[in-house]
Amino acid sequence: MSPTPAPRILIVIPCYNEEASIVSVVNDVAQARHQSGLVLDTLVVNDCSTDGTLVQLQTLPGCNYLNLPVNLGIGGAMQAGYRYAYRHGYDMAVQMDGDGQHPADELPKLLAPLLADKADVVIGSRFLERTGFQSTAVRRIGINYFRRLNRWLIGQTVHDSTSGFRAFNRRTLAIVDRYYPDEYPEPEAIVQFGLHQLRIQEVPVQMRERQGGVSSINTGRAFYYMLKVTLGILFVYIRLRGRRTLTPLAG
């Protein structure tokens, strides 16, 4: 059943003003490639950084990167990477943040369910085994809220729905190529995948605290974040549910 040539995997690293950490993240992936023997290619998506990120990428030998001419935000930047993976015939794609939160040595663990064809979407979760960086208390309240919302809507429990450390197979990439949420895409994408009948699996990973840069979500934006994501989730649910009843997916 498994394809004879080794599956090609693209590691998409979105970054906005990550000059302090981006080089080490790319190097970590290269090291993981050597250690695991997986065919891991890297694609850094520079979302119009205003610091020296682009220079770092240009001077890094052999670094494969996209340079977005306009700042699209994390969702748009990730979709650029996923589309790239889909068009270039990659079998899988992984999102790995450019700030160094997601350790590259967890990649084999994240990819294992995809390689065994046991899942279509794998999400690296901080909360399955409570080790590593656990985020702040306020954020965990928000994450719990999204977990309940997702469970209620799609009947699947995702403990760490805001985790950006996730891997998709080609079936998922085909869906993401057509639509991926723009702003704060992570929780909304889970509902999208659930309604497309994709198999979602969480694997425990350790995360680190960001190595550099600043988070895109500060306390002032937290309220907007919750509202925007809730609306996004509800509307993607209504839209896809309607479509599903019209044209039921085979299988």
Binding site: N64, Y65, L66, L68, A80, Y84, R87
Partner: peptide
């Protein structure tokens, strides 16, 4: 923007 980034590359 996506297409432009691909073309740039």
């Amino acid at each position: 923007t996506h297409e432009m980034a691909y073309l740039r590359q």
